[in-house]
Amino acid sequence: MTEERSIARMLAEIDRRIIYLLLFIVVTVPILRPVAMPLAVSPDTKQYYKVLNALGPDDIVLFVLDTEFSGYMEIQSGVLASARLIIEKGAKMAIACSHPEATGIPPMMFSYLRDVMKRYDYKYGEDYVVLGYIFPNEAAVASSAQDFHGVVKEDWQGRPIKGTFLDRIHDWKDWSLIAIFSTGVRSDAFIRHYGLRGTPMVINCIGVMIPTTKPYVDTGIFKALLPSMRGGAELEKLINAPGPGLAAMDCFTFGHYLVIIFIIIANIGYFGYVRRRAER
């Protein structure tokens, strides 16, 4: 009995640095040495794929990077896989940022997608335009929904957007789709000023946003939701283009197993030592 209690006490009082260290090792090792664990595709991702796969050369997509740089790491796979699919479908793409740090993302994105852009002859001005930081606040989003060219006149390098495919855009109804890649900076404003009016929208958001974003899928404001990095990995699998998402799934799997083990250990420690001590 005494021995049991001492084990329970040891489990209840594990130094948190050991937990951090183990999690660090378990997550880092698969990045250095990938294992390629199997992955199932969720209905959410299938729905997201269906919406993007229905795009054609006549469609124009507003590709909104609603993220700061640290959060981008979580949705990077979704951003890259979605952009690749849009390029493959031949749809036009206007890339906009709603956070100053997001302005560094498009060059990295196109550097990664260089091969597929070359293969599909996807050209700047004809097929895509980088608008830069154009949505600093809700007023800018609201105005762009009513008079797009009143708010945006140039691309990120100061070149006029007149004469590009964006001539076809006047207000909220002219976009074929708004794809938001969000850590929650400005996505609510798009819901209020585009989604509510009926512009088709999809979102790839970070994990903590999923519970608050899902209700908007039920209301039909978002046509589909790509959940976190896991969704990005599933999309990579669906479009047969392995990228950072699929490579990260090993880390996810091992990380989640470790947390389940820690939850069991913590409960043994709690019921075997902490609670008994409190009862005494």
Binding site: Q76, I210, S228, A248
Partner: peptide, 22 residues
């Protein structure tokens, strides 16, 4: 919600480590 939050935080960490290792 906690599980989603944990998944999100883990994804942030994994994404950063991937950026540093790729």
């Amino acid at each position: 919600i906690f599980a989603q939050t944990f998944m999100g935080r883990l994804a942030l960490f994994v994404g950063t480590m991937q950026y540093l290792a790729t």
